[in-house]
Amino acid sequence: MTFSLVRAAGFFGFWLILTGLSLADLAVGILAALVAMRASLVLLPPGQWRPRPLLLLRMALRFLIQSVLAGLDVAWRALDPRLTMEPGFIVFQPRSPPGPARNAFCAITSLLPGTLPCEEDANGDLLIHCLVVSPDVAPQLASEEALFLQALGGRPDHG
């Protein structure tokens, strides 16, 4: 219940961003927020996650810095005349259970420096394309994933 309310409030906030504060728009805004909440509950039913706002914020900040580093890294490689890179694949065993959490982690990974998840094999392992293949990549991803799961409030040993 509270979960739906939080979502509805989030959507209503988005509506306020779109229209600004005006009385005539509010009624439609509440309607739109309820419609959006219904759709989001149908498509993405609340799981057993208990997100921790502070940890989420810390993760968002970390992600922001990482994505800046990712952009710098790629720009440097593109403009460097020697074009230094050793592209290749690594196999990563995710600890997050299959479903929205793992998919969200994949989406985040694709914006981290040098990694791009390509596909999931039959065992549930992720095939990740790296700009520079090195043994450090997998442990680094594992620590990112642990942070992510912690922020979502799930048990990392789950699944």
Binding site: F14, W15, A32, N103, E120
Partner: peptide, 28 residues
């Protein structure tokens, strides 16, 4: 092609935002 992928995640996340934008475009 793959049953549960990032595309699934997008299809679970985006439509509610898109619905709001659709209603907004119609209303405005």
């Amino acid at each position: 092609t793959c049953p549960d992928s990032t595309l699934t995640f997008l299809a679970q996340l985006l439509p509610s935002v898109g619905l709001m934008l659709g209603i907004y475009l119609c209303w405005t």
